[in-house]
Amino acid sequence: MRFNDTVLGAIFLALAVFIIVSASGFHTPPGQKFGPGFFPTIVASVMAAAAIGLIVKGLVGRRGARLVELDAWFSQPRLVVQGASVFAFLLGYLAFSEDIGFLIVAPLLLWALIWLLWGHPMVALVIAAGASFAIHQFFVQVLLVPLPWGIVPYFKLF
């Protein structure tokens, strides 16, 4: 998604204004010249100045250009699905890993993603299951990272 410089500048200007407004609410302790709002204000002011520069540049340089340009792949449904699949994978993990457990959620997501991108569903299933299990064992048994078990009963191989 490519934005025109003017739009881009406006987005960052809005962010900078938000930071400055929030920072003005930070309480500076009595007797201090520089409080917690000082640095955010400086940083956001510089950001705002650069953003205004970008707006001007966009207005001068690319008059008549479209405000937002979609990438080429947005016109190909298959690529859109593939692009979205990365986010679906992450959101799926975030939503279900705690309650259902790594050992179920990770292989399923991995299987779906490999199948979608590569094909060969059966081989993909074996790879997904194997890779998830290997990662799980390495982190849980060797490095003692508490990956969520969810509904999977606890077990130990070695």
Binding site: V123, V126, I127, A129, G130, A131, F133, A134, Q137
Partner: peptide, 8 residues
């Protein structure tokens, strides 16, 4: 594949 099958 062989490795993962073993692990499973």
């Amino acid at each position: 594949i062989a490795g993962t099958a073993l692990a499973v």
